[in-house]
Simulated assay, not measured.
Amino acid sequence: MDEVIRRRVYGADHDDPDPGPRPGREYRELVGGPLDGLLIDVTGWSAERLAEGALLPTEIGRYGHGGRADYGPRPDDPRLWDWRGDTP
């Protein structure tokens, strides 16, 4: 039997006892970069917004506090969002 891995959602508090995905929500997996392996909640996003990706605030990227990590959909599998770099 395969073990289910409970994934952490971007933006969940570090002390949240259940930082994983919630039923009824839609997620994308972040691949590479400082947020590798996290999920981002995209529930309610338009097709255009999903195609753009997101600049996600993070303190663990190249620019530290105030920096953002740029993620966008993988062309052959839009459920995965690849890291495109960091920005101040």
Score class of each variant (00 low, 15 high):
D2A: 11
D2S: 10
E3V: 11
E3K: 04
V4C: 07
I5T: 15
R6Y: 14
R6E: 09
R7S: 09
R8K: 12
R8Q: 10
V9S: 08
V9W: 02
V9T: 11
Y10V: 03
D13A: 15
H14M: 12
D15Y: 14
D16R: 03
P19R: 02
G20T: 09
P21D: 14
P21I: 11
P21F: 14
P21Q: 14
P21C: 09
P23S: 12
P23G: 13
G24A: 05
R25T: 03
E26W: 13
E26N: 10
R28C: 05
R28G: 01
E29N: 05
E29Y: 09
E29P: 01
E29A: 07
V31K: 08
G32Q: 03
G33Y: 00
G33F: 00
P34T: 03
P34Y: 01
D36N: 15
G37M: 11
L38E: 03
L38F: 09
I40K: 05
V42G: 02
T43P: 06
G44S: 09
G44V: 06
W45E: 07
S46I: 14
A47T: 12
A47K: 08
A47Y: 07
E48F: 06
R49A: 15
L50H: 02
A51H: 05
A51D: 13
E52D: 10
E52G: 02
G53K: 02
A54Q: 10
A54Y: 03
L55G: 06
L55S: 09
P57Q: 08
P57F: 14
E59A: 12
G61T: 00
G61N: 01
R62H: 13
Y63K: 00
G64V: 07
H65I: 10
G66P: 02
G67D: 04
G67L: 02
R68T: 14
A69M: 04
D70E: 12
D70W: 10
Y71A: 01
G72I: 06
P73Y: 08
P73R: 04
D76I: 09
P78W: 15
R79G: 04
L80F: 15
L80A: 07
L80E: 11
L80R: 06
L80Q: 08
W81V: 01
W81S: 01
D82P: 04
D82Y: 13
R84I: 04
R84G: 09
R84H: 14
R84P: 01
D86M: 04
D86A: 06
D86L: 01
D86T: 07
P88K: 05
